[in-house]
């Protein structure tokens, strides 16, 4: 099991990027507004992996009513801002969680609910369970407990809300910046030909989030096994050689 501090996270980069001030004051106001709206409108994808999911309905319904905070459940990763992982994560489930996470549009946040996501909880000895979620995905908030009450969930969400508003919740960038590390952990767990149909490296390029930690030996391994994933381009003529490879 990895030590938390062994994860080569370069905290300063993300913090610096998150709170970057632009010279134009209007742009600043605009950024503030956007961040405010982002914090007040959080769509969450509750990936109900374990028993913690049972605490979400009370948090959403009449007793605690998340909607008054602008938090709504969504069912596809495309629409979601927050990935809620509510309990233990088996190896098989983790693959799906990673795919789902990668399909979410940035900025995106991960919340680990229950002890199981922190350190495996009562499944700490299980051979089939991924114990520390953080090794595979950049987790923004852990809400510990077995299980945490709705109040705790809402409190955690409010903490995240604050982080978003202040611009410090930018852990999602770390996934791109340190992709090689996360991929390495994933490959260790799954296999060396592990891949998802999403193209993280291209996305990192798209956002300019490529660092020297993004690419490495693990991504090299990935690229060896990966099916090509360029988007389908229009074609009018003969120049088909590039995409034809996709079939093999």
């Amino acid at each position: 099991m990895n030590e938390l501090d062994k994860i080569p996270v370069r905290q300063e980069i993300s913090v610096a990027q998150g709170s970057v001030k632009r010279s134009n004051p209007l742009a600043n106001v605009f950024d503030e507004l956007v961040r405010f709206c982002q914090s007040r409108s959080m769509f969450m994808l509750h990936y109900c992996t374990g028993c913690g999911a049972i605490e979400l309905p009370p948090a959403m319904t009449s007793r605690f009513d998340m909607e008054r905070l602008g938090i709504q459940p969504m069912v596809t990763p495309r629409q979601a801002d927050i990935l809620l992982i509510t309990g233990y994560v088996s190896v098989k489930t983790l693959k799906r969680i990673i795919l789902t996470y990668e399909q979410m549009p940035a900025p995106k946040y991960v919340i680990g609910i229950c002890s199981c996501t922190v350190n495996g909880g009562m499944y700490w000895q299980s051979y089939a369970t991924a114990k520390v979620l953080k090794e595979y995905l950049p987790v923004d908030i852990y809400i510990a407990g077995c299980m945490p009450r709705p109040e705790a969930v809402i409190s955690g969400l409010r903490d995240l809300m604050g982080d978003i508003k202040s611009g410090s919740a930018s852990n999602w960038k770390r996934y791109f910046q340190n992709y090689d590390h996360y991929l390495g952990n994933q490959q260790k767990l799954f296999d060396e030909d592990w891949q998802t149909p999403t193209d993280i490296i291209a996305e990192a390029e798209h956002y300019g989030l490529i660092t020297d930690q993004t690419l490495g030996e693990h991504t090299a391994l990935l690229q060896k096994h990966q099916q090509p994933l360029e988007a389908l381009e229009f074609s009018l003529g003969e120049k088909r050689e590039k995409i034809r490879g996709e079939n093999q």
């Binding site: 799906r96 149909p197 193209d199 798209h206 099916q227 994933l229 360029e230 988007a231 389908l232």
Partner: peptide
């Protein structure tokens, strides 16, 4: 917007292949 491959598609967590 960023164009993605048609296999990068939500399938309830299923992995799509060609």
């Amino acid at each position: 917007s960023r164009r993605v491959h048609q296999l990068d598609n939500y399938a309830g967590g299923h992995f799509l292949t060609a």
